[in-house]
Design a protein around this nucleic acid. Structure first.
Lengths: 338, 338
DNA sequence: TTGAAAGCGCTAACAG
DNA sequence: CTGTTAGCGCTTTCAA
C-alpha cells in the first residue's frame, strides 16, 4: 500500500505538504499542488481513514442502532425509510453509517467508547431500556428516533406524534358512529403504542366512551394477532364495531382474520392501522391508517446529530414531534345501523 | 479519555502487559492479569479500535453496498432480510457493518482502498456496472449477492436461481392451459430479471409457444406499471391470459390495475410474481410467486466473505446458486375456456 | 512472564 | 508557502 510518505518522497516534498494537498488546504502553491496531485494519481495513493481518524480523534462514522429481532424488522417496513433519511444527511456530510442490530449483552454505547463511531442514532429502542443508563453516563452524541419513556428524557429525539394521530383516528371513528372500539396494541415495549393509545383515550374519554378492559388486546412484540381472542371478542353480545391497531401489518392481518370469521370490513367492523406502510394501500380494502413520514424522521434525527458533532459541544436538547395525519381509505365505514 | 498508557502507569506494568490482558493473551501471570483487569475496570478503560486498527492494519468492519435509490429500496422489501442474514454472520465474527447506499460518483472500492473496511458485500449491483472494473483491479475481498452479468465474472457471488424459478412458473402456467403469456419485466438494469425471463423462455420455447414482442413490457427501475400500455394490450383481439411479473410489488399493482379495468384475477387473467415478499400473502387474491430465501442469501454471502478475510488470501471463486421455489396461491388459475 | 523501543499512516503545532 | 517535530493509542518485534 502506498502511504503519504511514499508520495512525499516521490514528489520531493514533506508529508505535511502532501497532507495539505489531499485536504484542499489553501496554503499551497498551485504548481506544488499540481505536482503533488500528479504524483498521487500516478501512485494511486489513498489516504488511510484509519490513520487520519487516529490523528484527528474521530472516525467520521455514525452508529445506527436498530433494536429489533429478525421478524420484527420485516414486519416493520418503515425502517428502510428512516435509514434512507439518515443516509441522505450523512452522505451530504461525508459521514458513514455503521449499522448494528441489537446485541443484547453489550450496550450500544460501547460503539462510541471504543471509538468506532463519533455518535449514535438509536432507532426503535424499547421502553425504559436499561442500557440507556450507560448512554446517559457517557458523553456520546446521540439522537433517538423514538422516545424511550413517557417521561421526559435528557436526550435529543425526533419522534412522530402518534398521540395526535390517535386523537384524529378516534374522532374519525366517532364521527362514523362507532362507540364500541377495541384495540390491538403491540408491542407494548415500544413507547409509541402508549402515546397512540393515550390519544385514542383522550378523545373517547371526552365523549364519555368507556374502553372495557377486555377490548384492549396487547401482545408480545410482533406476534400475530390471536384468532381465538378476536373470535371470542366478536361473539360477545355487544362486540366491537371498530378496531384500532398499532401497526399496519397487524391491521391487515386482523382484516383477513375478520373476513375469515365472516365479518365484512368495513361493513360489520371497521379497522384502522398506524404507519401508512406501503402495504396499506394494497390491502383490500385499502387500509385507513395514521400516516407518519419515516424518511423525514430519519433525516431530521441525522441533522440533529450532525449539528451536535459539528458543535463539538456536549449533548443538545433538541426534541421534536413530527405531525401525523389520518389517511382515510376503505377499511373504515359507518357503523352498521341496528 | 483513558488510554492504555494510563492503565499501564496506574497498574505499574508496561503497555504491552496491558495489551496482553485486553487481548486475552495466555502469557500473563494470573495475579498480574487480575491486577491489571482491576485497574482497567476502575478506570473504565476501553481500547480504541481506531488505534488498534491502525496498528493491525485492519478495521474489523465490512462494507455493505446497496445500489438503489430511495423508492427502489422501499419497493423491494427483501433487502431487510438480506441485511439481516449478513448481520447474523458478521455479529458472530465480531465484525461490524458499514452500510452505504449508492453514491454514483465514487466507486465503492474506495471504501476498501481508504481502509474504512476490510471487505465488501455488494447487494443488487446493476448489470455491467462500470465501477466494477475498479473493483477487479483492486484486491478487495468481495462477495456479490447477485450476479452482475450474464457472463461469468471472476468474483465470488451467491445468487438466487431465478432461471429455474422462471421455468417452474412457466410450467405452472402451461399446465393451467395458458398459451398467451405476457411479461412485465423491470428493472432491466438488474441481472436477475434476465435470468428469470430466460427461464420462462426456455419452457415456452420447448412447448413452441411464441412470445410476441409486444407481450414483453419493460420499464425503468421500479417505475409503476403503465396503465395505458396494459389497457391497450388487453384490448387486442387475442389478449394475454397470464402475466409474469419480475417482482411482487409490481405484480400486485398489476392485479389492482386489472381489477380496475374490469378483468377478474385469476378468472380472466392470471398473474404471477417473483420474490415472495411478505406482501404477496396479503394481496387479494394472494399472489402466486417465485420464492427465494433472501436471508439465507445474505447469510451465505457473509460467510464467504468472512472466510476470505480469515484466509487472508486473495479473492476466492466461490459462486453459489440458491434454489427458488414456486409458491402457488390464488392469483393464478386455469385459462378461461372459450 | 515481562518490558523497551519502534512503528502503523496521518495531522497538529510551530517554525522558518 | 513549506518543513520539522511530535504525537494519536495501539501492537509488534526482540530482548531480558
Amino acid at each position: 500500500v502506498v502511504t503519504i510518505s511514499d508520495v512525499a518522497r516521490a514528489a520531493q516534498v514533506s508529508k505535511k505538504t502532501v497532507s495539505r494537498v489531499i485536504n484542499n488546504h489553501p496554503d499551497v502553491a498551485d504548481t506544488t499542488r499540481a505536482h503533488v496531485q500528479q504524483v498521487i494519481d500516478q501512485l494511486g495513493y489513498r489516504p488511510s481513514m484509519l490513520a487520519r481518524g487516529l490523528a484527528q480523534g474521530k472516525t467520521n462514522i455514525v452508529g445506527v442502532i436498530i433494536d429489533e429481532t429478525a421478524q420484527d424488522v420485516f414486519s416493520y417496513p418503515l425502517y428502510n425509510e428512516t435509514l434512507r433519511g439518515i443516509a441522505s444527511v450523512l452522505d451530504a456530510n461525508d459521514l458513514d453509517m455503521l449499522v448494528r442490530f441489537s446485541r443484547d449483552e453489550t450496550s450500544y454505547v460501547e460503539l462510541y467508547l471504543q471509538r468506532r463511531v463519533d455518535g449514535l442514532i438509536l432507532l426503535s429502542m424499547p421502553l425504559n431500556d436499561k442500557r440507556l443508563e450507560a448512554l446517559l453516563d457517557s458523553d456520546a452524541p446521540c439522537v433517538l428516533t423514538q422516545r424511550v419513556s413517557e417521561q421526559d428524557t435528557p436526550l435529543a429525539w425526533v419522534d412522530a406524534d402518534f398521540e395526535s394521530g390517535g386523537m384524529a383516528a378516534a374522532q374519525h371513528l366517532i364521527e362514523l358512529g362507532h362507540r364500541r372500539i377495541a384495540f390491538v396494541i403491540s408491542p407494548t415495549t415500544k413507547a409509541y403504542v402508549h402515546f397512540l393509545l393515550r390519544g385514542y383515550r383522550t378523545i373517547l374519554d371526552h365523549h364519555q366512551i368507556a374502553i372495557p378492559d377486555d377490548f384492549v388486546v396487547t401482545s408480545e412484540p410482533y406476534v400475530s394477532v390471536s384468532e381465538a381472542v378476536i373470535a371470542a371478542m366478536m361473539q360477545q353480545p355487544k362486540p366491537p364495531t371498530a378496531f384500532a391497531v398499532s401497526d399496519d401489518m397487524k391491521a391487515i392481518q386482523l382484516i383477513q382474520l375478520m373476513q375469515g370469521l365472516g365479518h365484512a370490513v368495513p361493513g360489520d367492523v371497521s379497522v384502522i392501522g398506524s404507519d401508512d406502510a406501503l402495504i396499506a394501500r394494497y390491502a383490500s380494502p385499502p387500509l385507513t391508517t395514521i400516516q407518519q413520514d419515516a424518511y423525514h424522521r430519519g433525516h431530521l434525527a441525522a441533522e440533529v446529530l450532525v449539528s451536535q458533532l459539528n458543535a463539538g459541544q456536549s449533548r443538545q436538547q433538541h426534541q421534536e414531534l413530527l405531525p401525523t395525519q389520518l389517511i382515510v381509505r376503505g377499511s373504515t365505514g359507518p357503523v352498521r345501523s341496528g
